[in-house]
């Protein structure tokens, strides 16, 4: 039997994976290796698989992912810093048949937007919140975030986060899980292929559950910021596993009773 050639393999009928058509052709502005792109892609795949493009309204935050609307072929609104859950609240209440999500970083969701986050989740708004936690303010150049680990360095804690002086990292996902209005709360990561697969399943659930109208679905993704952490992408993912995950352990924090 003759050996099969690459040209024979690379045929449309043999394609098993390509970027979702919900992603636009615009090149992402993120730094090489940044988890934002991976999460965008997963969300796009879920929207495509569930055929939700025409029902979806997404809210982008202020932070690195502020320009997310350039990358996804869906209707999107750009919120002020921290206010995405307020926008989403109104949209979902005014158009309850739509799929409404927010996409927010740690500064947006867990610092300036803490009130909006907690109250939207506590009211049990039927929205899906994707929370990217990389422990740093990426866009503004690597300042301390509410989720920066103790002793972790950032440009506004250049000698490491001194919790006596700067306060403690906020595990906001744990708080959200205690609220009666949250329905599905989970913490995932996208730093290995296995974790990407799990994260996608979690995002898919968080999207599908919105149809149940039982409350807020909240997915934290522990992610990297290799530029802010000043590491190579590969090293950043290794550092994430060794330092972020012990503090922010992966897994479901709240699952619906079936």
């Amino acid at each position: 039997m003759a050996e099969i050639t690459l040209d024979q393999i690379i045929q449309p009928e043999n394609m098993v994976y390509t970027r979702s058509r919900i992603m636009t052709d615009t090149v992402l502005h993120y730094c090489p290796g940044c988890g934002h792109g991976t999460v965008h892609r997963l969300l796009a795949e879920v929207i495509e698989e569930l055929d939700l493009q025409s029902e979806t309204i997404g809210i982008t935050p202020v932070g690195c992912s502020v320009l997310m609307y350039n990358y996804m072929d869906i209707d999107m609104q750009e919120a002020a810093h921290g206010r995405a859950p307020a926008l989403a609240t109104a949209i979902k209440r005014l158009m309850s048949e739509k799929f409404v999500f927010t996409y927010q970083g740690d500064g947006d969701l867990a610092a300036i937007g803490t009130a909006e986050t907690i109250h939207a989740c506590n009211r049990g708004e039927n929205i899906t919140i994707l929370f990217i936690n990389n422990g740093i303010y990426g866009m503004t150049g690597g300042q301390m975030a509410p989720t920066t680990l103790p002793d972790m360095k950032a440009s506004t804690c250049p000698y490491g986060r001194d919790v006596q002086m700067m306060g403690n990292p906020l595990k906001i996902t744990d708080i959200v899980a205690t609220l009666p209005g949250s329905y599905y709360v989970t913490r995932q990561s996208v730093h290995t292929p296995g974790n990407v697969r799990k994260a996608k399943k979690a995002i898919r659930k968080a999207v599908e559950y919105q149809k149940r109208n039982q409350g807020t679905c909240f997915v934290e993704i522990v992610s990297n910021c290799n530029s802010g952490w000043k590491m190579t992408p590969v090293d950043a993912n290794q550092w994430l596993e060794e330092n972020m995950l012990p503090f922010y352990p992966l897994g479901d924090l709240k699952v619906p009773e079936e």
């Binding site: 039997m1 099969i4 690459l6 024979q8 393999i9 690379i10 045929q11 043999n14 394609m15 098993v16 994976y17 390509t18 970027r19 979702s20 992603m23 090149v27 992402l28 993120y30 090489p32 290796g33 940044c34 988890g35 934002h36 792109g37 991976t38 892609r41 996208v190 290995t192 292929p193 990407v196 697969r197 996608k200």
Partner: peptide
């Protein structure tokens, strides 16, 4: 090292920029 590729898609799903398309066939 193209001969070793099994089309497992690990590379494509870890890629933040979605630059990799994967093809797979069964041969006998």
């Amino acid at each position: 090292n193209p001969e070793a590729c099994t089309g497992c898609v690990n590379c494509a799903i870890i890629c933040p920029d979605g630059v990799i398309s994967v093809y797979r066939v069964k041969t006998t």
